[in-house]
Amino acid sequence: MTNAVTAVPPAPSAEALAHFEKSFAFETDCWDVHQAMQSDDPGFVLLDVRGPDAFAEGHVPGARHLMHGKIVGSKLRDDPEGTLYVVYCAGPHCNGAARAAVRLAGLGRPVKVMPGGITGWIDEGFALETGAAEAAA
């Protein structure tokens, strides 16, 4: 029986393996970010790229606030050139994290997206922090 799932055949296993292995270079999940953020040096800067009101209402503990439209080189000058950024927005229905990733990559900065965003974070049962962001220079 043919349906929307079976109408297009799956990729050969070797192609599927290469595709899914490569996806880890572009994204990470909420669980892995949570685990890494428990250490003194997670190895990345976590950026919440939503608006200031959303950030104040609740954000991932330890995240910095920098709206995706405000990502410019001068805002990153205190971070070494090879700093990895992990970006997130509201959740899977929001493309703000992808927009932030485009801007960071365009600046030559390493970046990964946390696709679940705040929605995924909450779904995992992780706590949020509240409060306004510090003013960026």
Rank of each mutant, 00 (worst) to 15 (best):
R64F: 08
A127R: 12
G117A: 11
A63V: 06
L128Q: 14
G117R: 08
S23P: 00
T6K: 08
Y85K: 06
E81Q: 12
G43F: 03
L66F: 01
M67G: 10
M37I: 01
V60L: 15
S39Q: 14
A101C: 04
G96L: 06
Y88P: 08
K75E: 09
H93Y: 08
A56I: 08
A98P: 01
L46E: 06
V49R: 05
A18N: 09
G120A: 04
H19P: 00
E129Y: 01
D29H: 08
L84F: 06
P80M: 07
D29M: 03
N3P: 00
T2S: 10
H65C: 04
N95S: 13
R77K: 12
T2E: 15
L107M: 09
A63F: 10
D29C: 11
H93C: 11
A100E: 02
H65L: 10
H93G: 13
A7F: 06
P80Q: 12
V5E: 15
P61E: 12
M37H: 02
V86W: 04
L46F: 05
P80L: 04
N95D: 15
A56L: 11
I122M: 12
R109H: 04
P12M: 08
T83R: 15
N95I: 03
K112N: 07
F55G: 01
R103E: 08
V33R: 12
F126C: 04
A11H: 06
